[in-house]
Write a protein that binds this DNA or RNA. Structure first.
Length: 535
DNA sequence: TCTTGCACCTT
DNA sequence: GAAGGTGCAAG
């Protein structure tokens, strides 16, 4: 991390539109694709995805994380995201710039947040540590960018912001916010889906890719655990300006609380005091607005930071999921992966069902600012399972079963989404649940009773394992992780046909961001996740 | 750990 | 001026 957020002023305007101005894309960093035939070194130096062999229109797409330095800054401390019942925005907000899209082709951009591992964490002794097994994953939900579907030209025109996405810990959330468990680690992901002629993507040739920026991983909390994170948020989030220890704000606030006047103390004095008490703001510690050097050790005044830094926990995949390329440290050159086309021909044999999650989650990230790129990241079910109710899928092992149950809900089926049905797949569209402000949430498929429900079911029939759970291949060895497309297409053919067309067309202007979240219920049952049903 | 009401702030 | 995004602190 170098420029430590000196672009923040431009980057973080909480209320800017979902599409920010182009000039706010300075800190973007190229994405990297999985399965690339190009060597990481070569790719990184060229910063170009070699996807010429693909003809699905997804080749060459690159995603740049905006405000990477800010994300990295948080990541180095151990990013925490507040989750509330009402829903809380993420900060830093997730913004990207995408290049390589066909200007005239329509794409759908979505985000989801998947478990980073299967652990529950606690923050004690100024550090994060594993405290047990993770709670069952919340119902997976997709946040569809409100501009979707839009042409490549549109997406490429400016920064794409997902800042209106909200996180909640309310299992019964009716707003379509992404549901997470407190004290659990998560990894946001971006999906780019090529829309078909109907602005959906249910056709057999639907193509999509997934991008993961390891530095955006975080631990969900109901209240900040690490004071450093609190300070970073306060210093960088405009909405928290009132808590900045600068000027007389803090003193004034304290005085008001105490019901008495306050002495005017120079900002420098306040800062110094803050540093002496462990605040990250030492000297010019306004990190993100300072020079790279300044932000290099913004917490030099902070004591108690154990060797086991939070970010290590965030980055380190579970011991039993060895990082594919442990030699890469955070901050090193990233690998560039290849954007591969989803197609029937691609290997889909059970033995090669390597879930895209089987990639480095945090341990050996590609490089900061660069996303992992998964083309067709949602593995289809293994051969033979495509036409079988997934609930009937046998478990291959107890472990698999456990994982399947645990993460059964957060893996949306992108290949079964269709823009025409978005307005119905939202958790609380008027047409669905107009009378109940808090419709009961059913962790397992409750939507099959209506056309909409059918669609929801179709969308959700996929499990979402923690990213670290399936890292079983070395990204450098690209092609081995190619999406097992045969099954995928089978499913698409089976589930994405005409019924979707019957639904009212997605109307952008009538769909506020909160209604752009698709819930992927746990229908997925505690069965073998499609991507893991190797037997 | 979590919820809630609050003051303060941006948009 | 309204709406809504913040972290704080009490409970």
């Amino acid at each position: 991390m170098a420029n430590g957020g000196d672009q923040f002023g431009l980057a973080e305007r909480p209320d800017s539109d979902c599409m920010d101005s182009p000039k706010e894309t300075k800190q973007e960093h190229p994405s990297y694709t999985l399965n690339s035939p190009v060597s990481p070194q070569t790719a990184s130096s060229q910063q170009v995805s070699a996807c010429t062999a693909d003809q699905n229109g997804m080749e060459g797409i690159k995603v740049f994380l905006h405000d990477k330095e800010l994300w990295t800054k948080f990541d180095e401390v151990g990013t925490e995201m507040i989750i509330t019942k009402a829903g809380r925005r993420m900060f830093p907000s997730y913004k990207v710039k995408v290049t390589g899209l066909n200007p005239k082709t329509k794409y759908i951009l979505l985000m989801d947040i998947v478990p980073g591992d299967d652990h529950r964490y606690k923050f004690a002794d100024n550090k994060w540590s594993v405290t047990g097994k993770a709670e069952p994953a919340m119902p997976g939900r997709l946040y569809v960018h409100p501009d979707s579907p839009a042409t490549g030209a549109h997406w490429s025109r400016q920064l794409i912001s997902f800042q209106k996405l909200k996180l909640t810990n309310n299992h019964l959330d009716p707003f379509g916010h992404i549901i997470l468990n407190s004290m659990h680690k998560y990894q946001p992901r971006l999906h780019i889906v090529k829309a078909d002629e109907n602005n959906g993507f249910g056709s057999k040739n639907t193509a999509f890719c997934t991008h993961v920026f390891p530095e955006t991983a975080f631990i969900a909390v109901t209240s900040y655990q690490n004071h450093k994170i609190t300070q970073l948020k306060i210093e960088n989030n405009p909405f928290a300006k009132g808590f900045r220890g600068s000027d007389d704000n803090e003193l004034h606030r304290m005085a008001k609380l105490q019901g008495k006047d306050y002495p005017v103390v120079p900002r420098s004095t306040v800062r110094q005091r803050a540093c002496s008490t462990g605040s990250p703001f030492s000297g010019e510690c306004r990190g993100l607005q300072g020079s790279p050097e300044a932000v290099g050790s913004p917490y030099s005044c902070e004591n108690g930071l154990s060797s086991g830094s939070p970010q290590e926990l965030l980055r380190a995949p579970p011991a039993h999921y060895p990082p594919p390329h442990p030699h890469l440290q955070h901050g090193q050159q990233p690998q560039i992966y290849h954007c591969t086309k989803r197609k029937v021909e691609e290997n889909c044999s059970s033995g090669n069902h390597q879930h895209p999650y089987k990639k480095p989650f945090t341990g050996s990230s590609p490089n900061e600012g660069e996303s992992y790129y998964h083309h067709s990241s949602y593995p289809p079910p293994p051969p033979g399972l495509s036409d079988i109710p997934l609930t009937d899928s046998p478990y291959s092992s107890d472990m698999v079963q456990r994982q399947a149950c645990m993460f059964a809900s957060s893996e949306p089926r992108l290949d079964e989404l269709n823009c025409t049905s978005w307005s119905y797949t939202c958790p609380l569209p008027s047409a669905m649940t107009p009378m109940k402000p808090y419709p009961p949430y059913t962790p397992h498929p409750p939507y099959s009773s209506s056309p909409q429900g059918s669609q929801l079911s179709a969308i959700a029939h996929q499990n979402s394992p923690p990213l670290g759970e399936h890292i079983d291949y070395n990204p450098y060895q690209s092609q081995s992780s190619g999406p097992p497309s045969q099954s995928s297409q089978n499913i698409q053919s089976r589930q994405l046909s005409s019924p979707l067309r019957e639904y009212p067309r997605y109307t952008r202007n009538l769909s506020p961001p909160l209604y752009h979240t698709l819930e992927t219920h746990t229908h997925i049952r505690c069965g073998v996740p499609e991507w893991s049903a190797a037997s």
